[in-house]
Design a protein around this nucleic acid. Structure first.
Lengths: 188, 188
DNA sequence: GTCTATAGGGCGATAGAC
DNA sequence: GTCTATCGCCCTATAGAC
């Protein structure tokens, strides 16, 4: 046993989600979160740059997973195929955390600031995918177009994945949406 | 002459953009903005729900313009064609405000909170377009897919429109990107 | 760990326009 | 009288500085 209880970050994360569910994000102060985790507000801010981030830290790992998958696709595959592969990797990453993801989604849906933060995380992810595509020799604009479009599919797939009664895996839903998109696009 | 100088909102907007350019968003307090506009901080918050919003209020009009254009497309046009029409309306709406838009873009690019706010405005726009499409009888998921994809194109087109040396109109750029997207998508 | 500036909300007062 | 835009003062929580 060390001098402190272990896993301060994990305890803060758990405490935060619990409190946000119990009494909403706005009605929870950083001091409340820290107290439940047995820490002080000052300690909270040493682990998270701001109050919102306690729900979002960890997205770097998803990003890395998707970028890695994209970069490992064989040479010569199309931009959209590479993006589809990255989406498949996200599916494996998500696995069966639906119950947790649903609680988290509900908290985020109720608060504008949290929705903003979620969007910027996805925008970062999009930029990383575009970089990775460009790194593979794809034209810069085409790379951004494919990445942004891919993220549009990602957002919608994530939403559907968490919908009531949905039983398919994330990547199956994403693949289905990509197919529908292909049918949609030629009209322009 | 009334008791107060007219157009408090306009004065606050101008003062804010000036100060953000002069000394950055972070280094400008709401009191600074209000002072330059000849008002107090309390009055600022009566017109804008928060400090960020002073740069974004007005986006409702763009949204209305695009939704109206979308709804006025003839019956039977495809989802992507309707979205393309909305994009064309946005082009007319933007007209020749490039100089202003560039200053605004530079301020926003320098601050994470402002980027977040911009993203949520675009997400709202996307949701409105999806609603409008659904209202026209398009399947709900297809509507969201088309709207999200359209917004991906919108974001990129806006970016390119403000790039140095760009001389085309916004809608010309958007139309070009939609064409490129159509070529990209079938690969999936 | 303490100290502080700023965001942003609540409530009431005021001074015009009508 | 009402309605509306402004200001003043109080407050708390966030988040950064020291």
């Amino acid at each position: 046993m060390g001098r402190w209880e272990p896993d301060a970050v994990g305890r803060l994360r758990t405490a935060a989600l619990e409190l946000f569910v119990e009494r909403s994000y706005e009605q929870t102060t950083v001091a409340d979160i820290a107290e439940r985790a047995g820490l002080t507000a000052r300690t909270f801010f040493r682990h998270f740059p701001d109050k919102r981030e306690v729900l979002f830290q960890g997205s770097e790992r998803l990003e890395q997973t998707m970028v890695d998958a994209l970069l490992q696709t064989p040479d010569g595959v199309s931009a959209m195929t590479a993006v589809a592969t990255a989406m498949g990797a996200a599916g494996s990453y998500f696995g069966d955390i639906q119950a947790f993801a649903r609680r988290r989604r509900d908290v985020i849906a109720m608060n504008a600031e949290l929705r903003e933060r979620e969007l910027i995380k996805l925008a970062k992810l999009s930029a990383s995918l575009a970089d990775a595509l460009a790194q593979r020799g794809i034209d810069a604009i085409e790379a951004r177009l494919a990445a942004e479009t891919g993220m549009a599919v990602f957002r919608l797939a994530f939403d559907l994945w968490l919908a009531d009664g949905e039983h398919r895996r994330f990547d199956a839903i994403a693949a289905d949406l990509l197919r529908r998109l292909a049918r949609l696009a030629p009209g322009a």
